[in-house]
Amino acid sequence: MLAARVIMDQGVEVEGVNFFTGFCVEGHTHAIREKKRIKPKRNNALWVAEQLGIKLHIIDVIEEYKDVLLNPKHGYGANLNPCLDCKVFMVKKAVALGLTGEGGFMTRHSFDFIITGEVIGQRPMSQRKDTMPVIASESGADDLLLRPLCARLLPATRPEREGWVDREALYDFNGRNRKPQIALARSLGFSDWSQPAGGCCFLTDIQYSAKLADLWEARGSREYELDDVMLLKVGRHIRPAPHFKLIVGRELGENRYLEGYRNTFTSLYPTSHNGPLCLIDGEPTAADLILAARVLARYSQGKTSDSVTVHIDRLDGTSEELAVVPLPAQEIQQSWHVGA
């Protein structure tokens, strides 16, 4: 946001591009969970574009991103976040969009250069002085990649050398201290300026990464679909055995979201008491389903009752009602909770 504004203030026309990998924190989590919605739900990138008065193109890169996540040349960060490869990919994609005009990008003028809001030293993996040139060269943007917020600490890029922008009016922000950026934001008149200090996607989240690793291990393959990665953001994931796990809704919004998957998963819900919806991922046996029903009963309002009736819809179209005793809390082993 700041980088764009700094460049716009130099009279350069800017358009924004935002990539949707499926792991982005923005949007759906807010949409799924109903509680704790303190701030109004909004797409942050769109909001920023509106504040700046620029166009924003949101690009679906779900498929292409799989290769970035599964085969990162530069490896992972603290969790399953392939930040450096991810940045290279995104800048490369931005170059391609600017050149081809795909997605209606930069329709009125062809693009001259690319800017990012990176700051040296702000993120351990991808925003280091030695990785900045890696992003520029591997993406093919080379010296058309300008980082207005730390440009003065980096060699002059073509936009600076050619005088398209004034290098002297760019910044030399460095490190994790965000005070200079906050001061700049204030001076530019942004009152509601917030950017996540952590990562921009779920892959930097330790619990999320644990669920993803668990899914890959259980399947014996690292293939994934959008639905898989979306479901990892929802509900409690409980794996009593390697071949199946339960996804139990934690509140109304999650239950409603899980409803949408009832024709692709075996599903369970209590009928004698109020309680969540549960999906079963994997290949449960009849005994496994009884166990699942007992676990689910533990999360229903009948958790202290002697008997809870659970309705089961199987994928083959058959269904049944089971009366079960809720599993005692101490029998739900800590190790069953994936990523918790």
């Binding site: 949707f20 923005e26 949007g27 797409n43 949101i58 997605g103 209606g104 979306m230």
Partner: peptide, 17 residues
């Protein structure tokens, strides 16, 4: 329907193009 943000926006953007 059934899509979560930002997918509805992406699909709208692609259609309007």
């Amino acid at each position: 329907r059934g899509l979560l943000c930002p997918l509805p926006v992406i699909r709208t953007q692609d259609r309007i193009k």
